[in-house]
Simulated assay, not measured.
Amino acid sequence: MPFTLPDLPYPADALEPHMSAKTFSFHHDKHHAAYVNTLNKLLEGKPLEGQPLETVIQESSKDPSMTPVFNNAAQVWNHTFFWNCMKPNGGGKPTGAIAEKIDADLGGYDAFVEQFKTAATTQFGSGWAWLVLENGKLKVVKTGNADLPMVHGQVALLTCDVWEHAYYLDYQNRRPDFVQAFLDHLVNWDFVNQNLASA
């Protein structure tokens, strides 16, 4: 079966005013959809056609001739994951296992926020900021373009998209303001706790 564009986990206006329905109309309905459509075309009649998305990502990451496949497959995964990292009335300090793990591994929530903001705002050009699990420990990392934790032996727990199309309609060139709004008002800590529990 070809890959399909997943529905957003909430209405397109559910994250306003921090992320607008107009942003979603471009980001989800056009950018994310284009990655899905391009990936399906690239895989047509090829050995990886019909394989799970994670398999396509892992296999294409090892072969420079498959970079276009990797870029589109990874971006399909990244965006689907990103939508689930947010929810209406989210953000702020986490609770549960992730809160304890952030205290233990990163020195507390405030230290995490500083590390995450630094990763997100210093990623040059397009990319992603991540909270990941690596060898049982939390770590904040950043990746360029479509790159993602799973090809580096890490488990993604949370991400923030810092490609310009993620925030430009709402924040123009003010990436730090977008990242702050993401942390304060949008993070879905329930999803992060689920990811931690299943890691």
Rank of each mutant, 00 (worst) to 15 (best):
F3R: 01
F3V: 03
L8H: 09
L8M: 07
P9L: 11
Y10G: 07
Y10P: 07
P11C: 10
E16W: 07
H18Y: 15
H18W: 14
H18P: 00
H18M: 08
A21W: 11
S25A: 11
S25V: 04
H28S: 06
A34F: 06
Y35E: 08
V36M: 04
K41P: 02
L43N: 02
E44R: 14
K46G: 10
E49A: 14
G50S: 04
E54R: 12
T55L: 11
Q58L: 15
Q58I: 13
S61T: 08
S61M: 03
P64N: 12
S65K: 14
M66F: 12
V69M: 08
A73Y: 00
A74S: 11
A74W: 01
V76R: 02
N78R: 02
H79I: 13
T80Q: 13
P88Y: 09
G90S: 12
G90Y: 05
K93L: 13
K93A: 15
G96N: 07
A97W: 08
I102A: 01
A104C: 04
D105S: 06
D105F: 05
G107C: 09
G108D: 03
Y109I: 09
A111L: 05
A111C: 12
F112I: 09
Q115W: 05
F116P: 00
A119V: 08
T121C: 15
T122W: 12
G127H: 03
W128R: 08
W128Y: 12
A129C: 07
L131A: 01
V132Q: 04
V132G: 07
L133Q: 15
N135I: 09
K137T: 12
K139C: 06
V140R: 03
V141C: 10
V141Q: 05
V141N: 10
G144Y: 14
G144L: 13
N145M: 15
D147N: 11
D147S: 13
D147I: 10
P149Q: 08
P149D: 06
H152M: 09
Q154I: 05
A156D: 08
C160A: 14
C160V: 12
V162Y: 07
V162K: 01
W163C: 03
H165M: 08
A166N: 00
R175K: 08
F178P: 00
A181P: 00
D184P: 03
L186F: 08
L186N: 02
V187D: 00
N188C: 02
D190R: 06
N193F: 10
Q194P: 01
N195I: 02
N195Q: 15
L196G: 04
A199C: 08
